[in-house]
């Protein structure tokens, strides 16, 4: 066998990058996109996530949604590790523009500048943006 596949999913593995651009609340994109990430992990794909623009707010610590009658789903990002989704990236320019630092985030991430983000996208098979 030239290629090794995971025991559970007996098929090809592609590099999937999910690009999260939107704030967690206000629109449904972040919540529904997270569902796609979890399914891609169930298919044992090589999954990465990047947070850019207002998407960086998705992983900010201490979110409190009590006042807006929305489900606080930020804990799901912490659970991604359990699905072997461990490659999380944040664009530096997006953090800087919002006065945020790595310490404000609820998961471990790798910080990339926009050139690094461009290289990351180049290395993917499938890029899904929302």
């Amino acid at each position: 066998m030239a290629e090794e596949f995971d025991d559970e999913f007996d098929g090809p593995v592609k590099r999937f990058l999910f690009v999260n651009r939107k704030a967690p609340y206000g629109t449904v994109y972040a919540l529904e996109s997270l569902e796609v990430v979890l399914i891609s992990a169930a298919f044992d794909q090589d999954v990465s996530l990047v947070f850019v623009d207002d998407g960086v707010f998705q992983i900010v610590k201490d979110q409190d949604t009590d006042g807006i009658n929305m489900k606080n789903f930020s804990r799901t990002y912490r659970a991604l590790e359990g699905y072997d989704v461990e490659k999380l990236y944040v664009e530096k320019e997006s953090l800087d523009a919002r006065g945020l630092t790595e310490d404000d985030l609820l998961v471990d991430v790798e910080i990339l500048d926009s050139q690094g983000l461009s290289d990351l996208m180049d290395a993917q098979d499938v890029v899904i943006t929302s």
């Binding site: 090809p12 592609k14 999937f16 569902e35 399914i39 794909q45």
Partner: peptide, 9 residues
């Protein structure tokens, strides 16, 4: 949603 991931693959 598996159909979306399959399409990607």
């Amino acid at each position: 949603l598996g159909q979306l991931i399959e399409a990607g693959i």
